[in-house]
Design a protein around this nucleic acid. Structure first.
Lengths: 332, 332
DNA sequence: GTGCGATATGTTGACGTCAACACCCTGGAG
DNA sequence: CTCCAGGGTGTTGACGTCAACATATCGCAC
């Protein structure tokens, strides 16, 4: 009776022990209501006794669904992306979906990344549109996608994004309220939706206040690029809005090294509110985006599509301004 | 002939088009040598024409292997963990393995996390032993694991870790060479292997130099905890080794706020060399660990075990000291 | 007592793949 | 000419699950 090799426990084993058919075990495993409570208990007991766990692959083969989500991201080096990943991972786990991560090394690798998603047989995927600058034409329509950081519904896909522009406006208005003549901007890389939106919000706020619009500085989200860009900042500038916190870190160093105190000489506002921002010197005033809500919402929408069906839409999440010590009145 | 619903392309379809049996298609798909080159070309052409992709689930069902790796991690909020994830994801992708991420929310959730890994039917998993403080007793032996940051082979499992102690020694020796009377230490949380090892290296280096060992400060890897701990630093301290860069960031702020210049009054060394460290104020001297090598090595070993077989071992990777501007001579 | 609906359970087969085995050829040795 | 080796290919069946259909049982209305 006792087989040498430990064989996997299958439904048939459970069925045999519980004295029912395999189909009934299947029904119990899938919470079908069509099972007598007494039978259900008996089957459950047999499952526990044998340590039964359903076989994902077999289930996937039969049903065509893998109960797996994908996450496509360009890099995990940026803190924002890491936070998103964590949020998406948690949200997926809460819904008992697995999460596979696909990184897209270069812009030319986007189609390869989609192929990898298809190979994984994911039921759906969250696309972090950061730096990959996807156009509708690049998005396949044979995959169920939730595109984070795209302007509106892209083809048949849902989209979701933070209100980058609104957050940027709030940052600029905060600075203008301190009496600064204008606000300079250290933008993110070209081709990034988030960078473009934040820049747009900055422009709008300046325009609304009828204030001159300085030339834009540009970085690539890294602290190093922020440092380099800030070294070229107009000597007369008194207020700087950087498109993310890490570039703000670099800017703070550049300003410090050139003898311009923050916020004494120059006020600085970042974007993201990464965990470290409160410990920058000085602690950074920044625009907080709620990564957990973003990731949760993305997964929620995706799962609803998987399990229910169509209805593409777009959603926008609000930001909040977190005021710390890097902003103050304009020097007189 | 033309079915309404788009049905998946299977081996049978390819076989039919190429005029061979399904088995021959299978052989081509798996690079079996037992196929006539002409036949192989014909099958390949048919695959391309139909857009055939093998069905992972069916393959997994048949072979019992999913070609999927797991990564278990406590949190992705720390930059080090994110970097590891990225490295592991890239290494797995290079070997055409999928990667599923499992986060373990609390210490009590460890077994739940293993269950999730089993449910995913992973062929093997990389365990980042950060903060979860796994003991051998907690590690299941029905999963193939590669434990990163464990002392030696754990049960049947391979292990791998950075030479934390060696890196710490190098940091301390660097500071002592500047003439500091001793070096204080801001350690990581209790129960963390990395934190314990770094602390050990610090102690060893002090002992080797016959220098007094100050009381240890302790944080939880976050910048905020580093700030709080550093506020309690001995006023006479002139050198501080923090167990990671993010705590160093907090410490830099605390020192700055209490009027102690770095490196004028106090020299500081971190650990990790995160991307931002070069833009701290001042740029941080730190111990670099090569996350890419670590992740690559972990995956490489794991895959070899999966595809070849046993032979548990342990490996240690070296660190390098990166000297920047946060360290200097002891004040006289 | 008959008929019928509702509920509970069982039977069959197929999802796509690949291992094991069976078979057919070709060519060379004896 | 026979036999055999070995390469190339086909046939069969099973992995574990679940949808569809079939069957059994019960209660109740007529």
């Amino acid at each position: 009776m006792d087989e040498g090799a430990a064989r996997r426990v299958s439904m048939a084993d459970v069925a045999h022990l519980a004295g029912v058919s395999g189909q009934t075990v299947s029904r119990v495993a899938n919470d079908s209501p069509r099972v007598d409570p007494a039978t259900r208990d008996r089957v459950r007991a047999a499952m526990d006794e044998l340590g039964y766990r359903p076989h994902r692959a077999a289930r996937a083969l039969r049903t065509g669904r893998t109960h797996t989500l994908g996450l496509m991201v360009s890099t995990l080096a940026s803190v924002g992306n890491s936070r998103m990943l964590q949020a998406v991972a948690d949200a997926a786990a809460a819904r008992r979906y697995a999460l596979v991560v696909v990184t897209v090394a270069s812009a030319g690798d986007v189609q390869g990344a989609f192929t990898r998603l298809r190979d994984q047989e994911v039921d759906g995927a969250v696309i972090l549109n950061e730096a990959t600058a996807l156009t509708a034409g690049e998005l396949p329509d044979d995959l169920l996608l939730m595109v984070v950081d795209a302007a509106g519904p892209v083809g048949p896909h849902d989209t979701l994004h933070i209100d980058h522009a609104g957050g940027a406006r709030a940052a600029v208005e905060h600075l203008l309220a301190f009496g600064h003549a204008t606000v300079h901007h250290l933008a993110g890389p070209e081709g990034s939706f988030a960078a473009a939106e934040r820049e747009r919000g900055w422009r709008e706020a300046l325009a609304a206040a009828s204030v001159p619009v300085p030339e834009v500085l540009r970085g690539d989200w890294t602290a190093a690029s922020g440092h380099a860009a800030a070294l070229t900042l107009d000597p007369d500038a008194t207020a700087l809005f950087t498109a993310n916190d890490q570039m703000a870190l670099g800017a703070l160093r550049a300003l410090g090294d050139t003898g311009r105190g923050v916020p004494g000489a120059v006020s600085v506002v970042g974007f993201d509110d990464i965990a470290d921002a409160a410990d920058f010197r000085p602690p950074l005033t920044t625009v907080r985006q709620d990564f957990d809500a973003l990731g949760g919402r993305a997964v929620e929408t995706l799962v609803r599509r998987i399990e229910a069906g169509p209805a593409a839409g777009a959603a926008v999440l609000e930001t909040t301004l977190v005021v710390r010590a890097s902003t103050g009145p304009a020097p007189r």
